[in-house]
Each structure stands twice: as C-alpha cells, then as structure tokens.
C-alpha cells in the first residue's frame, strides 16, 4: 500500500503545498491555521527532495519525519535520501532564549555560507512560557523580530494557535508586519486548503481603515484549535 502524504487520516497535504510554494519566492510568508506545522514540515521535505537547501528552526518542537517519509515513498525515494540530504538541516529550540540565539547567530552563520529557505515553526510557542518574566519576553521578542528581519533568504514562518496569557498573545499581532504574505492552512469541509490573506500586491498601512479584515481574521483564527 502506498500511503498518500497526509497530515492526519483523510487530509492529503499536497493540495496545500502548491499555493504556499508559489508565495515563497515572492517574499516572506507567514502561515497560520491548524495545518501550519505539518504543511511547513512537508514543504521543507518537498523542497529538500528537489535539491533545495532548507534550514528548519523548530520552535514548535513539531517536525514530524513521518510526513516526509510518506512523501518520499510516494515519489519513490527512501526517506533517508531526503531527510539526510546535505543542505537539509534542523535545530529545535525549547526556550525563547534558544530560539533567539539560533536565529541571531547560528542561522546567520549558515546563511553566509549558502543561501537556503529558512523555516521557523512556532516561533511564539516558546514565548508563552509563564516561567519567563514578561519583561524579559518582550526584550527577547524585539531581538527575535530584528533577527527575522535581518534574514535575507526566503523565509517561511509557520505559527499555529497556541494557548497563552493574554498579554503574551499580543505578540501574535506583531507577526504579520514581518512578512509580505500571510496565509492560513486549514481544514474545512472540502478538505485542507490555503487562503492567502495578505497578498504581495496589497500594501498595508494602518491608515487604510484600521486592520485589514483578512488580517483580523488571521488573529481570530489563532485560537480556534490547539
């Protein structure tokens, strides 16, 4: 039996890939929604399989090798051929300090040698840790923003909704301003799909009647699923 690449049973992911992939060369992409993490995982596997270099910074602790393995089988490769490919690298961050250091130093260092797609999964997940004082979190988040903006390579940020204290959740509002494209990967009754909320062509100014309705939608959907 050859399995399709699925996020969960009955949710093939390939459908999601095309659209996100198209957006990446157009600039930084923020992917939200309940399928953001599996979509980012699969996308990094797809790109690595086609010879692209990928740096996966796993802040959500969610890289699922089985997603890539199923994809590999589908295209007739051994999973190791993709997962162990030179230029496909991963590092997990378990605290917001680690995540910040990773993006400030390590990623920059690697990018200087070779360009690559940078995927950051759940950058805000680690910032929800109540064990770290809010003052410190704010300072670190500033550094994170700077580090993300300094990345000149294509960037995909996958940020699904996570639970957290109210003040910490305000950080979610900051993410869209870091990117050119905001997209949502979700499952609705027709299956998984991606909706582009902040396209490249649309310039965003706060004066344009407040928040864009679609962006507001992004914020609303942040909490819909765990």
């Amino acid at each position: 039996m050859i399995p399709t690449v699925q996020v969960s049973p009955g949710v093939p992911l390939e459908a999601l890939m095309g659209e996100v992939r198209i957006q990446i060369p157009r600039g930084r992409v923020l992917l939200g929604g309940s399928l953001a993490l599996p979509a980012a995982t699969l996308l990094s596997g797809v790109l690595a399989a086609s010879g692209g270099r990928v740096l996966f910074v796993d802040g959500a602790n969610a890289f699922d090798p089985y997603i890539v393995a199923r994809y590999a089988r589908r295209i007739g490769l051994h999973p190791e051929d993709i997962l162990n490919r030179e230029g496909f690298l991963l590092s997990r961050a378990f605290t917001c300090h680690q995540l910040t250091v990773l993006l400030e130093e390590r990623v920059q260092g690697l990018l200087e040698k070779d360009p690559a797609l940078v995927v950051v999964s759940g950058p805000l997940n680690t910032f929800m840790d109540e064990g770290i004082p809010w003052q410190e979190v704010k300072a670190l988040f500033k550094r994170l923003q700077t580090a993300l903006l300094r990345i000149s390579a294509p960037l995909l940020i996958a940020q699904p909704s996570v639970a957290g204290a109210r003040e910490r959740r305000t950080l979610f509002r900051e993410l869209p301003s870091l990117v050119e494209t905001v997209a949502l990967a979700e499952k609705d009754k027709w299956g998984p799909r991606v909706r582009i909320l902040k396209p490249l062509t649309q310039t965003l100014r706060p004066t344009e009647g407040g928040t864009l309705p679609l962006l507001a939608h992004w914020e609303e959907t942040r909490w819909d699923e765990r």
């Binding site: 699925q6 049973p9 796993d58 602790n61 969610a62 699922d64 089985y66 997990r92």
Partner: peptide
C-alpha cells in the same frame, strides 16, 4: 524537552486510523 518525533504507539494508531474505511 525532547520527543519531537511522534511515539511509535501514536504512529501505529495513525496507520490504523488511515485504514478505517
């Protein structure tokens, strides 16, 4: 920290569910 890769029992359940029909 640790345990990023889904535990095998979970993977097994996924495979089983995928064959529900």
């Amino acid at each position: 920290m640790g345990r990023t890769v889904a535990p095998f029992s979970q993977v097994l359940a996924q495979e089983e569910r995928a064959l529900n029909q």
